[in-house]
Amino acid sequence: PQAGSLGREDVRNCSSNPPFLPVTAVNTTMRLAALRQQMQAWNLSAYIITDTDAHMSEYIGKHDERRAWISGFSGTAGTAVVTMRKAAVWTDSRYWTQAERQMDCNWELHREGDIPSWVLAEVPAEGRVGFDPFLMSVDFWENFDLELQGSKRYLVSITTNLVDLAWGSERPPLPSQPIYALPEEFTGSTWQEKVSTVRSYMKNHTMAPTALLLSALDETAWLFNLRSSDIPYNPFFYSYTLLTDSSIRLFVNKSRLSLETLQYLNTNCTSSMCVQLEDYSQVRDSVKAYASGDVMILISIEYTNYGLYEVIPKEKVVINMYTPVMGIKAVKNSKEQALLKASHVRDAVVVIQYLVWLEKNVPKGTVDEFSGAEYIDDLRRKENFSSGPSFETISASGLNAALAHYSPTKEVNHKLSSDEMYLVDSGGQYWDGTTDITRTVHWGTPTAFQKEAYTRVLMGNIDLSRIIFPANTPGRILDALARKALWEVGLNYGHGTGHGIGNFLCVHEWPVGFQSNNINMNKGMFTSIEPGYYQDGEFGIRLEDVALVVEAKTKYPGAYLTFEVVSFVPYDRNLIDVSLLSPEHLQYLNRYYQTIREKVGPELQRRQLLEELAWLEEHTKPLSA
């Protein structure tokens, strides 16, 4: 493999004279000047701009895209800090090239190193470091505060957001679409059943909390089986829930609920199964008032913002990494499992239709990354129960695929060609489930290195998918299996190995996954399995499937688990080097291909998609060494 080429014109070069900025860079000079004016008024030496909203959402509404507005960098993860002289962004390897494409030379990009150390170096003693308490999790604040202790630099909570003041009238408005109840056929249990289950968890909790504060948007959406569209690709609405053993308080913009939805929630009473509506903006005052009594409030350290935490006396708060709702939601019941699986069969039809279309049209030279993304998005929208894509489609050809989260635009994209590898990572939101799948293909002659890298990524996917492990094993213990085949030859990937997925909820549904802050694996959980390999400046590979955690049959008795893959699209035979695969790999692959035929074949037949059916049969023929 060759190192990424120098002198590229797609990224900035701030060390050249004059500095080089690509067309994609955003001029932030005026924006920074406006923010620094506000910082001066508040006597701040630095101001922290996080990448999230008041609910610690991974994907946020346009009006919450403060870090993107001030820095130009639009990736979903990354924190900015602005001082009177400097401005800096920290982000992970998925977004380094994107940041170099979008930021101008006012900004430093930090690929590593922690933010508090930089703040300690840049802010003078007695300096005040401002932040919006609603946009920082308790976890983030505690870590930051710990680092600054004894340094004579002080974190200052300011409830007025200074970026918003600088943004002014250009800031997009708040959403106001209706909030609706999901039809019963698409829910695993009624909201009353869910409330009862959560209450019994609270009762059995060692700290016996009197109330549970739900801050993450998917927690409230799940609990009440309600949905809306406040955040792109996510069917959520801005809300909090304060649940006690005798009351339910839902903080929301009431005008967005129809009379029918109000009745569904029993809002005209105050007993234990009635939902009392309070205005969204009242949550801080209401939590503060509730906390003045003889109470104990359970919160999540990851999802609760510091603005709510700071109004609860410390002796009245129980901090857990995740709320019981997160844990209960992660284990899908049999109805939810069936719903999620059904959505994956329809989604496989979409991806297969797309791959067949690409095979016909790429050689004609008529497809680019953007038109491809539009095509697959349109296919999904035509499916039953569709509510659009579950994230911005990643359609990346050649070197662009080396950026794990690259998405093309109408203006800037790359033509698909038989000479390059192509990666498509996409998913749908359907009323019965959320999907997410990645396939990488090559329609011409791949290099030996590309075939080896692809096959090793596939080996990692198979090694993890077929593992048998004890119940309640932490995902992080399994993570190395997905990397083993790559590590053996000195290759790796810079992102996580997988994530939970929701029933018409988050595409990245925490806390299931393979990292240290994920919960232990148990029956009924769904996770993605997605190893990859990225050769900077050349190509990228990712093979992603969604799998259900199921009981494993073992020779000796015991509680053992394995994965049942529910994504049903074959891999690219053109990129598989069978000589690298073990007999176990081949046996697994051929069994998986048989399952694809059984699950998707009848659906293609039913719809008379005969070309796609022929393609499926061809691409799922048994492989041999």
């Binding site: 870590n143 990494m321 990643i394 998913g427 932490p474 595409v507 240290s516 992603e544």
Partner: peptide, 24 residues
Amino acid sequence: MAPRTTSLASLWVASTLAILSWSN
């Protein structure tokens, strides 16, 4: 879609909790 790698800041707290639950 590829998930981010856990930030080092929260790794310590998370590991402590995970080890506790694992040994239980």
